[in-house]
Nucleic acid binder design. Sequence first.
RNA 1: CGGGGCGUAGCGCAGCCUGGCAGCGCGCGUGCUUUGGGAGCACGAGGUCGUGGGUUCGAAUCCCACCGCCCCGACCA
Length: 579
Amino acid sequence: MRLSQLFFATLREDPVEAEMPSHRLLLRAGYVRQLGSGIYSLLPLGFRVNQRVEQVIREEMNRIGCQEMEMPVVHPADVWRRSGRYTDVGPELARFKDRGDRDMVLAMTHEEVVAGLLADLVQSYRQLPVLVYHFQTKFRDEPRSRGGLIRVREFVMKDSYSCDRDDAGLDVSYWKHHAAYTRIFERLGLHAIAVSSDVGMMGGSLAHEFMVLNPAGEDVLVLCEACGYAANRQVAVAPKPAAPDEAPLPREDVATPDTPTIADLARFLEIGEDRTAKAAFFTTGDGRLITAIVRGDFEVNETKLVNAVRAIGGIRPATVDEIKAAGMEPGYGSPIGAHDTTIVVDDLVARSPNLVAGANRVGYHARNVNAGCDYSADVTADITNARHGDPCPECAGPVVLRNGIEVGNIFKLGTKYTEAFDATYLGEDGERRPIVMGSYGIGLGRAVACVVEDHHDDKGIAWPDEVAPYAGHLVALGATKEPQVAEVADRLHGIAAAAGREILYDDRDESPGVKFKDAELLGMPWILTVSPRSLAAGGVEVTRRATATRSTVPVADVERLLAEGLPAGDLPAGELTAV
RNA sequence: CGGGGCGUAGCGCAGCCUGGCAGCGCGCGUGCUUUGGGAGCACGAGGUCGUGGGUUCGAAUCCCACCGCCCCGACCA
């Protein structure tokens, strides 16, 4: 592909709106352009990267026996009503009416469609298991897109679905996907780690997210370097320290002016935050007020809290009025004397004697508050976030907290969708049973962005061989002055093209500086420089983009390399005659 | 949805406070020179100053409304 013909443009300066390296470089190097918030066009280079990623995923999905198909983007709303998601999912599900005034949706995923197809096609246990997948555009009207391609509203996703006779079959399909995902991310050059994750309200029993460590990641991971424990903080078990062995003392109020935060309170009373109880207030989607009590030195984990109270429609922070209506005072709140609220007490607070808690009066707290005596819990559960340095739940070693970007997830769904769509089969024993499903996703654009995050330097992108849009970037210098340069470069380009292994060819009439800068920005794994100087030195200068290792290789050897395909990794020593 | 910021040439920005010819750098076009690290000279093209309304003799500039984009938060089966 001649750069003089390629539909692209590089930017000399950083676009203001781009903060993450992947966003900045993909824009600057001419891989993508933004159309609207969270909506991007893939330019030819970006499209080729997407195709390469797609091909890696396709090969690995096929390898586990997953069959490629395609399902529609636009669905009649009735399909989503049948599963209940038409009302369960919030405004991120885009809805519209067609010309016949029928309700329609833009699909976020395809569980419903798969379940409907199963009901249509599968009669007997002999037809199971089935694994299917497709690459399809998803639209999710996210409240806020961010980070370039990291969080967008429209994106292509590989989603696959396993359909099994029973839980044992699901388990096999699930771990097949786990293995396939591990191979996929390895081939893409991503160090993805599988962490256990929230199964949410889907009634699923097991879920993993594949995470790439990144400081800008939106998820917090709890990792143990000693034993390999890895979990999303949303679900990471938080082993708690021992509570002091004290007899409960009688409660007494104490004046604590201007101490609305735990830090203020601990400083005022000259006690540790671990001797306080913190109240946090939330309202569920169906209007219940939740009062969560954790020890002052811990944070409430909202996912755990949602699961503990089986909140319908999730939770949001409660308003001041809602808190006061239940007889509590924000900043000085506690469940003492509260009414019309569900009290959820963290397991550590439940066994910690004589804590300082709010007195539900501005400027006052209560000493020696004891759960079970001074108030009673509706639910007692682990509802705190694991903290940096906390003991690992598996091996008790210290855990570390890291941010991560979710590039894939695997999820045991169960029978929620197949039951809704009456997707059953007749078993060997003549019994009719619902098919057991799992669903598995990988966001392509996000994976591409993560690859750039992990494979770039201050000059630009350095694509891994498996995802590079072209293996080589041929730079011709001084071609107008020295006809032999143009002749050699044209021939090399032609040989690669004829072999079906096209390379980029910078045939533009630009200065050497511009060409080198662009080659480094675009990031093909191999940069081949032909110039009067290189020819005088004996051939073509061959540079590995990622390592900047450079050698001069005879033209004949380069011709052979291009015909056979440029190698992945460094030049094989000895195979080539470096000059 | 709450908080903050921004919208002026293809890109990056100045001008706005204090109203009075719409500018700078890069890029783009033509010509000549140049050719191993974002070249030089000359000439030139390119703008509904996000949109609508208001104030004013006069609005990029002041006021109101709206739209869009970015960041933080909320949200994210």
